[in-house]
Amino acid sequence: MRDALFMGKLTASATHEMQNILATIRESSGLMEDLLAMGGEDFKHAERFKKGLRVLAEQVERGMALSEQLNYCAHAPEAGPAGADVNEALRALTGLMHRQAARSRVGLELSPGRTGLRTALRPVEVMEAVALAVEAALGLLPPGSQLRLCVEEQGGLAVVRLFAPGFEALRETPAWTGLSAQARSLGIGLSPGPGGLGAVLALPRPVA
């Protein structure tokens, strides 16, 4: 826990620095764009130049998203009296696991669900439990599948639902046993989804 908080502090500081770097790149490329718009008609490579500036802008956006997700991770081990916002934790997690899923040729997305639902767990605990479930699914789903996560409310509890075609086989694998043990240790209820499809993680309710 102390290790995680220490690493989080260092990482959070580095993400602020990354943000300043990205902001400077955006302003510099914005200035080039301004100057090109003011007198670039005679510039032979104007179109190629504009394309380069578009790429820079896209990459800054990409860097920003990653930097925000890393910043969220950096603070995720911290315990707060209000617990974790489940949707925020899953947004950071799906963003960061996107590349891992892509390597398995599985699409990973967070469906629009309920926002503002909270749990007594720390953000890192929500992320770890859901990441275990996602990793187990990635080892099972055929290439080309789409794995969806959704946050819902059931009986006053925040519930994370994972669903994908063919996912029901997960419960027959050793990964399910590991996931069950992890879920139990965190007070998370683990069950198959409606109709036996997917998995549902019912998170402990926030402390009133």
Binding site: T24, G30, L31, D34
Partner: peptide
């Protein structure tokens, strides 16, 4: 770099 470039863009 960030803030002087921003000033330059505003000046333009």
């Amino acid at each position: 770099e960030f803030i002087t470039t921003l000033a330059e863009r505003l000046d333009l």
